[in-house]
Design a protein around this nucleic acid. Structure first.
Lengths: 209, 209, 209, 209
DNA sequence: CATGAATGAGATTTCATTCAT
DNA sequence: TATGAATGAAATCTCATTCAT
């Protein structure tokens, strides 16, 4: 006469299994309720264990946040495209992969886009987050630089600023996809399409004669 | 020695004077230490009064945060350019004004860019914040739409996405200007210049024959 | 162009005048809101002065409560009838005078009846309150003793217990008169009448043959 | 030496056990020190646990007070006599049972008698308290009405006022039994005896010829 | 591995009281 | 005399963390 339909995950599980459960729960709370609601009690409730049990698997809450960050980093790392192809193609792949990532893991990227997580993460977490962000930055700039070298993008443009434009657009697109209040969701491809057209310099407005 | 170079602000001051001091201190803490460190004690330390004195000037911490938000809103409102001129010109003016704003008030915009402040702000603060953000969004889209109408920007491009690009670039530029670790600061005019060139569709890469 | 109709008591008044105002206000608050709401701020609001001004006129809040108690004592003292007349007549006079007192000063007796005020009053206030209560007790017992001596009341009855009966009835009658929820208010004379009939032993029930 | 005669209650106990301990401690403090001294710290000291531990067992202080009130209600409820017997006999039973109750639980009835507890109890507690008091009132009046119907008490007397007399006497008797300063304690039976004689109208004073 | 009880540190807030104006 | 600003002490409550079971 069990009332719960789902098979009620086993009460006792190995630390190996619990750690990712906890890290994911932390991520979910961070994304939906905000850092202020990430308490041991809330975490336990989310996972289905007592709050004190958290500390069997992680030394303290800082370690939990660190683990959550590492999960984000892993997911982000998985979005880097393979090395081949045209530079703008690789940029496009990253752009679309990151947008796709938040369809499956909407909770993840709300964090990644906010460079404010640093403050919830403690010094070590901040360091790792910065490294990850730097990696994105470098990848994007490298793509752009190569695109300039190959004539896909005008070489006269400051590559750093171009990088800002790409990253900024990605951030806002992510926010728009996650936010409940975004007025008009756009297909990721459509977003990239506009950005790529700008970068390629193609769409000069029709200057009527 | 320590004869305190600054004239040691008077112990007693009027509520009129204290309120902005407190709101500004809150802003500074929010920007530098993060929402988690915005406590009455920290606020008092920052202002130079006891923590309990805060509540003589504001009913509770929520009101303090609200006041801080209103300060940001005021500053942001002051960056809208007058109505005349070309659409891209007005956009440029807003872009540069907002970047200039954070030279004087670096603490301010770290908040405005973070759409996560909502969770620290309580429902009323969140409402106001969203209204302000919506206002920016509308202004930018309107400029872009007019720019398309006047042939400054290719009409074929989705204006919503163009808005994302502008806003995203502004966000990253702001973050770069505020962040201690931005590798290569760029002159605001240079940033805008790149963005405007892209929007105008001018800089087609030299396709050498 | 003054908007307030009543002549707005003068801003500055002598301590002589302020002290009773404050004591009365304290009494009113104690009776209507309870001891928990007797704060310096509430007191100031009630009197129409700033909270800090209280301490110009009284050393501290304990002194205010003491003054309030003394006011109650004075009012209670004024209810003792003159010495002449029959013992039960004097008892009746006290009974009715005390009930009448709370028509004019409903706030006063809610305190007097509650022997719990002791705990809000501090040791000195408690001492004085006990003295006042003892005085009532003595007066009532003396009346009853004399009534027994004069054959108005059966001499076989324990005078202490008779005193409890009289005092208890007075307490409940006061509570009933003050309380909002007393189902059926009784005229003071009617209450005393019943009590006196009992004391006189008259109304033996009709024992049907 | 201090080998602590009592077996030093175990540090850890179940919530089940702690809850009544805390409620009782609250009752004791309310009765001896007054509502103003019922703080979490005092409560913790009384029970032998840290103040913050209180909130493991009760949500907040209001709940503690509510539990204390419910304890009083339970004890009071247990004093109602079974339905049989004469009306005055049932009244006598209640009277004696309530007086007996405070021999075992002196702290309890100091609260019940004070209708002022309402203000410390919050709305819900006040409601329950009033219900309990109303129940006593009804029981007493019913007994008296039946006593009149059966000729034990003169039917001419206002039953409401008779009820006040009984309740008042009970209150003062309770106060006398609890108070440290009551000059001459009386056996409960003696008190009731006097009251019953008055009600029965028997003891007309000897009017010597 | 899991938990419930316990705790100390700290956050918000209230309040009596002091002091300069 | 009156006040507004300031303060420290204390109260309630939260939370990460420890520990015995």
């Amino acid at each position: 006469m069990r009332s719960t339909t789902k098979p009620t995950a086993p009460r006792r599980q190995r630390t190996e299994d619990r750690r990712p459960q906890i890290a994911d729960a932390a991520l979910r709370i961070l994304a939906t309720k905000g850092a202020g609601h990430l308490t041991a009690a809330a975490l336990g409730r989310e996972v289905g264990i007592a709050d004190s049990t958290i500390f069997r698997h992680y030394r303290d809450m800082d370690e939990v946040v660190l683990a959550a960050i590492d999960r984000v980093r892993m997911l982000l790392d998985s979005t880097y495209p393979p090395n081949g192809g045209s530079p703008l193609g690789r940029l496009r792949a990253l752009f679309l992969a990151r947008l796709a990532l938040i369809c499956d893991h909407p909770e993840v990227l709300r964090l990644a886009s906010s460079d404010r997580l640093e403050q919830v993460a403690g010094p070590e977490g901040a360091r790792r987050l910065r490294a990850t962000i730097q990696q994105s930055r470098d990848f994007i700039e490298t793509c752009l630089r190569e695109a300039q070298a190959q004539g896909e993008v005008a070489a006269s443009l400051d590559v750093t600023v171009l990088g800002w434009i790409v990253r900024g657009t990605l951030q806002v697109a992510v926010a728009a996809a996650t936010g409940q209040r975004s007025p008009a969701p756009r297909a990721p491809e459509a977003v990239w399409s506009v950005l790529e057209q700008l970068l390629r310099g193609a769409p000069a407005p029709d200057r009527a004669p």
